[in-house]
Design a binder for these strands. Structure first.
Lengths: 347, 347
DNA sequence: GTGAAAGCGCTAACAT
DNA sequence: ATGTTAGCGCTTTCAC
């Protein structure tokens, strides 16, 4: 089964010759640029269709744009991120831009490789979702290419940001649980030590929001934070620690910083022979499809991922059109989605 | 907050000047090509480091390679696909190749847009995971760029394939359930009418495997297939139909064609007031993290996603090195992972 | 409104 | 082993 030799690609020169016009004319038609008569446009479009011509993005990028938007997601396994992506692709569906994703990153080094790869490939714009990189690195990217940072606080003149109000989101959960009568409300956070990230990362803000809300309810003596990671494993270990730490006076409710963490909580709780919400109320964050899954029915916080994606695209296109404009920060308000995993405490 | 003007990118000419050599020399060092002395290499590498030079992939692509591999996943929400992706990125981690993903596709039109975008961007190779496109389109892609099709049967001289033996996988499930004493074993499949896809798509093969295995066990009279889709929604509706269809003689076991389908099954079963595995045994396919999730504990079939990804990369790199070599098909054997969602029937 | 020509950053073919 | 030159496919001056 010997494959035949691939035939040469159709170029702008072929189109120009076939339409009996100059390559300049073809280029103008392609970009809807000024300086081509309706007759010219029709002639060129016909030639394009007849030859099945498609412009070579790399060659275009050498002088103009590549019509490519790079999106970096931190973890393809976290079911929240597809929501953001949907918002992005939906907003870009009617444009000439094509979205390409960097593969999952879990550390600064991988992030750097992916962002550099995107810059090197001449992407016209980059959307970074919950990046963990240093401020300096983000600004480096923002200097090279129009950039929007999603799901991370902290502003810079070199890139725009879209985030939800994580402090308010955490407060929604604590208000809900306190309103049900809980006092011993524990929180599982993603461990963070870097000072910048403590200020900017959503996980740190959620932990802050938890503490603030607990104080606001006069529950400071019950503040109880376990520091693991935003993974299922992190929720599992965190819960084991919580249950071991407080024998026999265990918390009546756990606020997991992300739905994926709540998955681990539910697993550990089941293993310990306890039931949700009978023995323990559990709430998450992100309102993923997993939370909505009937047999689980997890109370969660919706941060409107699609809306975040849409806003990111809007800011990005604005900045591509005007690289000099001042940077913008968009903050969206989260909403609580109460489900069966939270109820009144039994005692 | 006015951002400063971005400074010009460092090019190969800057490096050549700084190292006092020709651009050809720099190019040779970059590509580890023949014809540069150790001293030359050292000098050039130093200049590259000092200037922070990184090659422009688009420009490279105009003459040589872009060092980019495109991967298309059909549905970013299906937790099986990250496994394949992990296998791909792990195999490519030590190479100069960078992976970029097309955003989730659910139809032929979206697939065509993504694959064309990858070809237009000069990708050196393309990996298509469970594509639904026509044979002709896949061959078009394979003609333009080295291509590997993963998770779909049917061979072509124009691309390589990696798939698991879905007929055997389905047999593993039926064997397991029949061995436990089940006879009324139902199957929920992804609806398919296109003749090519009926032959090539894994969902169709699993349904075939189910029928063959039922016959092999002398259970042909209990063959019972509901045709929906490989989504949570599909599992939910399929189960409702199954339960309504067989009052009061409902199946004692359901083989869902994918774990994501099993999620919908579990949801519908819970809503109907039935329990798993007490009233109904449930098995899935793909062995996702969801199946392993303790409170669910879903019996499933592992098709070794990482292994599939690794094989895809191996075939792709071989074909990039030798475009003329005959096409190869790799078939991997699945394994059963029994968990708590399947047990003996109660009656 | 139209087209000729230069050049984007790099690699390949061809000197030397 | 090293350098010179042409040219990949496109956009952008800048003439006309």
């Amino acid at each position: 089964m010997e494959p035949p030799a691939p035939r040469r690609r159709v170029t702008i020169v072929d189109v120009a010759r076939h339409a009996q016009v100059s390559t300049t004319a073809v280029s103008k038609v392609l970009r809807n640029a000024y300086g081509a008569s309706p007759a010219m446009r029709a002639k060129v479009r016909r030639a394009i269709d007849e030859l099945g011509y498609r412009p070579h993005a790399g060659a275009r990028g050498l002088r103009g744009q590549t019509y490519t938007i790079g999106v970096m997601l931190p973890d393809i396994r976290n079911p929240f991120f597809p929501e953001i992506l949907d918002g992005i692709t939906a907003s870009l569906a009617d444009t000439e831009y094509q979205v390409l994703l960097g593969p999952g990153c879990n550390g600064e080094k991988e992030e750097a490789r992916v962002t550099e790869a995107m810059v090197d490939r001449g992407m016209d714009g980059i959307i970074l979702v919950a990046p963990v990189s240093s401020r300096a690195h983000l600004e480096l990217v923002g200097t090279a290419v129009p950039t929007v940072v999603v799901g991370r606080h902290g502003s810079s003149p070199l890139y725009d940001t879209v985030a939800d109000d994580d402090i308010e989101g955490a407060a929604l959960v604590v208000d809900h649980l306190a309103g049900l009568g809980h006092r011993r409300i524990a929180h599982i956070e993603h461990h963070e030590t870097d000072p910048t990230r403590l200020r900017e990362m959503p996980n740190a803000r959620r932990a802050d929001g938890y503490r603030l809300a607990m104080r606001a309810h006069g529950l400071e003596e019950w503040i109880d934070v376990v520091s693991t990671s935003y993974t299922q494993e992190g929720g599992y270990r965190g819960t084991q620690e919580l249950l071991a730490r407080h024998v026999p006076d265990r918390p009546t409710a756990v606020f997991a910083g992300a739905d994926i963490v709540a998955m681990g909580v539910l697993e550990a709780v089941a293993e310990a022979g306890l039931s949700v919400p009978g023995d323990l109320s559990v709430a998450g964050y992100d309102n993923t499809t997993f939370a909505a899954f009937g047999p689980i029915s997890l109370t969660s916080v919706d941060q409107g991922g699609r809306e975040m994606g849409r806003n990111a695209v809007r800011l990005l296109l604005e900045r591509i059109a005007d690289r000099g404009r001042p940077s913008t920060q968009v903050i969206l308000s989260p909403t609580l989605v109460p489900r069966r995993s939270t109820t009144r405490p039994s005692d």
